[in-house]
């Protein structure tokens, strides 16, 4: 566990979370959420939890980003009723 590396990842993590919350475009928000997933994966790998990091890379950053984008593509800005 390298302390300086930890701090850098955590700062990026907070920045990515804030951007994902504040950005107007839902597509960009889901892409940034994927970045957030990869940063958490990096944090876990760095702490030695390689199995969890692997799962996070496959599920959190890979599949869930795809599912979010798929859902965003099927929504419209205005509601139909």
């Amino acid at each position: 566990m390298i302390f300086a590396f930890d701090i850098v990842i955590l700062i990026f993590l907070v920045v990515a979370a804030l951007i994902a919350l504040n950005v107007k475009d839902l597509l960009s928000a889901s892409m940034i959420f994927g970045i957030y997933g990869f940063l958490i994966c990096l944090l876990w790998a760095e702490m030695g939890a390689v199995d969890v990091a692997f799962t996070e890379a496959a599920v959190g950053a890979g599949i869930s980003a795809v599912l979010f984008i798929t859902t965003v593509y099927n929504t419209r800005r205005r509601s139909s009723d």
Partner: peptide, 21 residues
């Protein structure tokens, strides 16, 4: 080594999703 059924299954499912995308 790191990995197992969940991770491998997700990657295998993702390969079909990539074809669809």
């Amino acid at each position: 080594s790191p990995g197992g059924g969940f991770q491998g299954g997700v990657i295998l499912g993702a390969s079909f999703i990539i074809i669809a995308l």
